[in-house]
Nucleic acid binder design. Structure first.
Lengths: 100, 100
DNA sequence: CTGCATCCAATTCGATACTG
DNA sequence: CAGTATCGAATTGGATGCAG
């Protein structure tokens, strides 16, 4: 749970399931995350080999984040988890309504 | 992630996958968790309808914790997550070794 | 754009001791 | 057995501002 727990790590991995993303793309995807936190979490995921970082071609400020080969293997797990969470939320909202 | 994140919630759900358990059973299963934390997490999971609590037959101190009907639906997710985590750990240990 | 520095509030979690 | 009470350390993450 340490790997993908916390408020952001799972969300970051989920956001990268589709395609590689730039820093700003992630930032707006995960809004309202702050730069400080996003940076930290990306470094953590990089150290743990779940993502890889490509520093831009040329001297541009173009950095790209993507699932590593190994990070891809967790995509199905993350997506299944999300599906379950959505179902769960529905159920919780229903029981809230029927309790009145 | 809030539901099963943190150090213990996922582990508790995993521990209850097999069969209902008593407080002490969970406590030793999840060793070194403390009573204080286990109590808190169980209350949280109860409030979120992932587990149900059966207070003992008679006046005995016999309380039983089990997956709720809905909690059962997350068992496959939890177990898949665990499998993936095990694989991940293996891979990380290997790369540690080959780095020397 | 991509990030680091500083500061700070809230939360989490653990140790320990105690109760009916 | 199944918790509660108290205390404190450590971590997390948010706000804001600055830099190359």
């Amino acid at each position: 749970m340490e790997l993908i727990g916390g408020r952001w790590r799972g969300a970051i991995m989920a956001s990268l399931c589709g395609s590689p993303k730039r820093f700003v793309e992630l930032k707006s995807d995960l809004h309202p995350i702050t730069s400080r936190v996003l940076t930290k979490e990306l470094r953590y995921l990089e150290q743990n080999k779940l993502i890889i970082v490509e520093y831009g071609n040329g001297a541009k400020n173009a950095v790209c984040y993507a699932h590593s080969e190994h990070g891809k293997s967790c995509a199905p797990v993350i997506l299944q988890l999300r599906e379950w969470a959505v179902k769960h939320r529905k159920l919780m909202l229903e029981t809230l309504r029927t309790e009145h």
